[in-house]
Structures are given as C-alpha cells and as structure tokens.
C-alpha cells in the first residue's frame, strides 16, 4: 500500500507545482500585450524585459515598472550588432560577423550559447521551429559576403549549421507566415518563398509594388515597410498575397 501512496502524494505535489508554474506564466503574459516588430529592429521585449542592442552593447531593462524602465544588465560585445530577434527562450542577434544566440533562461542576464560565423555582412534574422533564416546584404558599408538568404539548422541550438544559401539582390527584412517566407529586396521586389522544405525553398512569386525594406505578417495582413510608406497585403492565403492598400 505504502508504495502506492507515496507516488500519489508526489503526483499531487507535482500537479500543484505544475499548475502554479502555469498560473505564473499566464499572469505575466495575459496582463500585458506586446505587438509585433519588423525583423529589422534593435529593441525587443521578452519576459517583461526590454532588450536593446547598440553597435557593441546588449542592454537589458526591467519593465516591472513599465512606466519607468530600469537598466539591469549590459554586455560589452566585441562585434557590430545589427538586429535582435526573440524566439522562445532565446535571443538571436544578427551581427556583422555572424548569428549569435543567447539564452534568456535568466531573463535579466542573457548568456551566449551558440553562434554561426559568416563573412562580414548585415543580417536580420527570423526563426521558425528549428530553422533560422538570415539575410545578408552585401554593400560597401556591410561587407563583402555574397548577398542572399542564408538558412541555418538550429536543432542543436548550441551549434547552428548553415544548410542552404540562396543568392538574392539586396535583401533586407524578412517574415514568416505558416510555410511561406517573405524576403524584402528593396527595389528588386519582395520574394515569396514556399519553405515547406526549409532547406530548399521554392520561389512562388515576386511582388513589385514598392521598394521593400521589411515586413510584419500580422493577423492575416502582411504589413510592408516601403520607402514611400506602407503597403498592405491580404495573406489569408499566405502564398498568394493580394494587394489591399498603399499608404503614402
């Protein structure tokens, strides 16, 4: 009998702990709503902290008093940082020397856990499940890497592996909706890829309604950052964007 009682007690204890952890998580998530950023950004909010990258620093601000952020941490990083992208428990830093991955298990003090070096370049990042999509721009200010879409396998988060490179003209921001990837290529249009097989994307179409800088897939609408304003597409069928409106 005793043998059965002890596991039962343990089970109850475990359930209570589990419930409690859920409640806590829900409390922090439900009370405050964040929006969605484009992929080119140096500010991001996760776990009630604001993470900011400047050229050589990663800084962390506590938002426990949301009206008055307080700096709680700064890392001096020895590389030129371009962008920051949060995914699950990680921060992905696009830098001019590679893709750096930080764990935010301890949200107030991110720790470097993985990196994929590449030639000097600029690069926003988006992440889907176990795949990281990075665009590298090759311009005088960004460096000599071949411009294109770089796809990394991040199944082992500590050791990202470059799987595929697709040359693209002047790529910038990018975004994912379901199995569709949108890549902004400035005046060369916006490339729409099917990424069902993430390591061999197929180009579905190129949209040419503007000079595309960045995108946000948002509630069935694709918000495009255009040199002249904003372009909106209906993406209820993500592979077939339908132009809704150009805001100049």
């Amino acid at each position: 009998m005793k043998i059965f009682i002890v596991p039962k007690k343990l089970l109850i204890l475990l359930c209570v702990v589990f419930l409690y952890s859920c409640q806590k998580e829900a409390a922090t998530n439900a009370s405050v709503q964040t929006g969605k950023s484009g992929s080119i950004t140096r500010f991001t909010i996760a776990k009630n902290y604001l993470y900011v990258v400047t050229n050589h620093y990663l800084s962390v601000y506590s938002l426990s008093n949301p009206a008055k952020p307080e700096k709680v941490h700064t890392s001096d990083l020895n590389y030129d940082i371009e962008t920051i992208y949060p995914y699950n428990n990680y921060l992905f830093l696009g830098t001019r020397t590679g893709l750096y991955i930080y764990s935010i298990d301890t949200a107030s003090a991110p720790s470097l856990i993985g990196l994929a070096k590449h030639a000097r370049s600029c690069d926003p990042v988006v992440v889907n499940d176990s795949v990281a999509f990075v665009t590298l721009k090759s311009s005088s200010s960004c460096g000599p890497a071949q411009a294109g879409l770089y796809i990394h396998d991040i199944t082992d988060i500590n050791n990202p592996v470059l799987k595929t490179t697709i040359p693209l003209p002047d790529p910038a921001g990018l975004g994912i909706q379901d199995s569709i990837l949108y890549v902004c290529c400035g005046s060369n249009g916006m490339k729409v890829f099917n990424i069902k097989d993430p390591y061999s994307p197929t180009l579905i179409s190129t949209q040419t309604d503007g000079n595309y800088l960045d995108v946000i897939p948002y509630n069935g609408i694709l918000i495009c950052d255009d040199m002249e304003g904003i372009i909106l597409y209906d993406i209820h069928e993500p592979g077939k964007p339908v132009l809704i409106k150009k805001i100049s």
Binding site: Q33, T34, G35, K36, S37, G38, I40, T41, L213, D214, I216, Y218, I223, D225, D226, M227, E228, G229, I230, S248
Partner: peptide, 11 residues
C-alpha cells in the same frame, strides 16, 4: 514620410 525606418504593429 521622409526616411522610412522600423515598423511595429500593435492592436
């Protein structure tokens, strides 16, 4: 709009 920069969607 003079020099388009980052975008953010909220509500």
């Amino acid at each position: 709009l003079i020099n388009a920069g980052n975008i953010y969607a909220f509500k």
